[in-house]
Design a protein around this nucleic acid. Structure first.
Lengths: 319, 319
DNA sequence: CCGCTTCAGTGATACGGTTCAGTGAACCGC
DNA sequence: GCGGTTCACTGAACCGTATCACTGAAGCGG
């Protein structure tokens, strides 16, 4: 390319990035590039400049349909900013999350977006020193940015809705997670349940339909809740499946609430009453934050996402 | 790293890849690497060796939930083989497909897996000369491998099922695609419909729920089909939504058939009768084929996927 | 004991850009 | 007309690994 234009490699490099060149040189380079179908090798560029144009996207569990939507959205958003998303799946496993995070760093991504499985894991702060990190959902020490959910409010919306409909005994299904009892979202559940005088029992479930169904069966067999509050729509789908298998009607025999609002939730019969977090807003915020951080912005930014109750038909009014 | 061990860079390079070194050197390198937390820089490695360890995954449309599942599965499968998947979304647009394919090539991926939107596009053969390509769904000239669906059989299964249930007038909703009338799958539909004496009308729809619902509304408004056959479960979901909005019952007023079998299809009411393509098998085959090709295998391999009818409750028996 | 092969390791070069210091020319005000 | 800037471009070093040709030493059979 340098010899094709008769210029020095440096001049070509500058021209290709629209930097410090005369109109004429610019034109010469453009012409030669068009002629040869030339594209700067991103790898050589990455080696020399230290930036790859890739953003790691470390998902908590891609079995969760909602997280799939999120990943697709973020991937698109980044593409529009001329970056690539490298999507990885921790499958709800903190150890794997840690390993994948390191691998992403070794891949020299320009930054990463994380939905942490274990936000309290000790390796995060060190990692955040190394590269820009944007956390989604939970706060992480040292991140360049975060899109956090006002989970207190979300939980309040959900539990108040259930209480308002006359439910007292509620089973809660949360995604499988490390055994940190002070998990913010879970704390909110017990706190809010206390405040509202609700009787709750908490169990865990992974996001896959089969696993969630299994967990739902246990809940429906052992306890006698009148309602199940699932901390992800994906898990609520498991409750639908289990209820069908047990011949229970929703909401007649058992009420169900979700958390996320995936498009499919409106299609079920009955529609799943859930807490909507505005996935598009999350996508936009995350893309904006990581782009800014990867471009060198230093200010730490924090976006708080507010939930909306999306009432459909899966909660029975017992009054 | 070279000076940390007192060896030449070459020796370190060999050692790190377990090549042509003595036990002692091996040990020295291992120790130093452990001490420094050293990992070979994948970018420098890519520049020198010409291989990046990344496989491009070019999806036809990630709005399709089934393709999302496929992407997640393939991404996992590749990770197990120490490769990364770079997931891109053509959004059903041939022009974008072309652009993204080129970008992937420029990214120096070691190979790519494609679900072609436009398998007849003229750039494919040239691209396949450049790097290993595995096609899923449709055949591509010059690919290193392909996982093709026996669509003739799939269509036959679906249409025979509908005919067996007494349907004569069937609307067909296929994904939005370039206007090549000789699209294999579509050809099969008209051919099979002819053979079975079915009266069909074909319309297109994109995969997004909103768009699919819109398309379904048009079909339900204009025509008087007794059944709708959708070439993707995602599109069938749109029919469910449209039917609900129009106060039509499934299958009482309108029967629906899908194509793919996404996990959610079993959860709907009624369950979506569909054609199952064994997504796990596809994932395994695609990962195996692209790995072999990227590792230098030259033989062109072809895997043909056979469908299964998954009967649930969305088709009414009119006899 | 000698020539031949095998093996571990070395030095040099390549990969294809980026980046920094430096250079000559044009331009500035005085 | 002269010192000082600014501008466009060049030359050279560098990013961190792979790879090739080569060397010295060890191992081998005869």
């Amino acid at each position: 390319m340098a010899q094709a234009t008769g210029l020095s490699p440096a001049a070509v490099s500058y021209a290709l990035r629209g930097l410090q060149v005369s109109e004429e040189t610019m034109e010469r380079v453009r012409a030669a590039a068009a002629e040869l179908g030339y594209e700067a090798d991103p790898i050589a560029r990455a080696l020399a400049s230290g930036r790859t144009g890739m953003i790691g996207l470390l998902c908590g569990s891609l079995e969760d349909l909602w997280q799939q939507s999120l990943a697709v959205g973020i991937s698109r958003g980044l593409r529009e900013k001329d970056r690539y998303a490298l999507i990885l799946d921790a499958v709800g496993d903190p150890a794997r999350e840690r390993a994948l995070a390191q691998q992403l760093r070794d891949q020299r991504v320009d930054g990463m977006i994380v939905q942490p499985v274990d936000p309290a894991a000790p390796f995060w702060p060190a990692l955040c020193e190394t590269l820009p990190v944007v956390a989604i959902g939970d706060s992480l020490a040292g991140t360049a940015g975060e899109v956090v959910f006002d989970n207190r409010r979300g939980v309040t919306l959900a539990l108040e809705h259930l209480k308002g409909k006359g439910h007292r005994h509620v089973a809660v299904l949360t995604p499988t997670r490390p055994s940190t009892p002070d998990r913010p979202a879970d704390v909110h559940v017990t706190a809010e349940a206390d405040r509202l005088g609700l009787d709750i029992e908490v169990a865990t479930a992974s996001h896959g339909l089969a696993a969630a169904t299994e967990a739902a069966h246990r809940v429906l067999r052992d306890g006698r809740p009148s309602a199940v509050f699932c901390f992800a729509d994906s898990i609520a789908y498991g409750v639908y499946a289990a209820a069908a298998e047990r011949g229970l009607s929703i909401p007649g025999d058992i009420s169900v609430m979700g958390y996320d609002d995936h498009p499919m939730s409106g299609l079920l019969t009955p529609g799943l009453t859930t807490v909507d977090w505005d996935i598009d807003g999350i996508v936009r915020a995350a893309v904006r934050l990581i782009s800014a951080a990867a471009d060198g912005a230093t200010r730490r930014r924090r976006v708080v996402q507010q939930p909306t109750l999306r009432e459909r038909g899966s909660v029975l009014s017992r009054s």
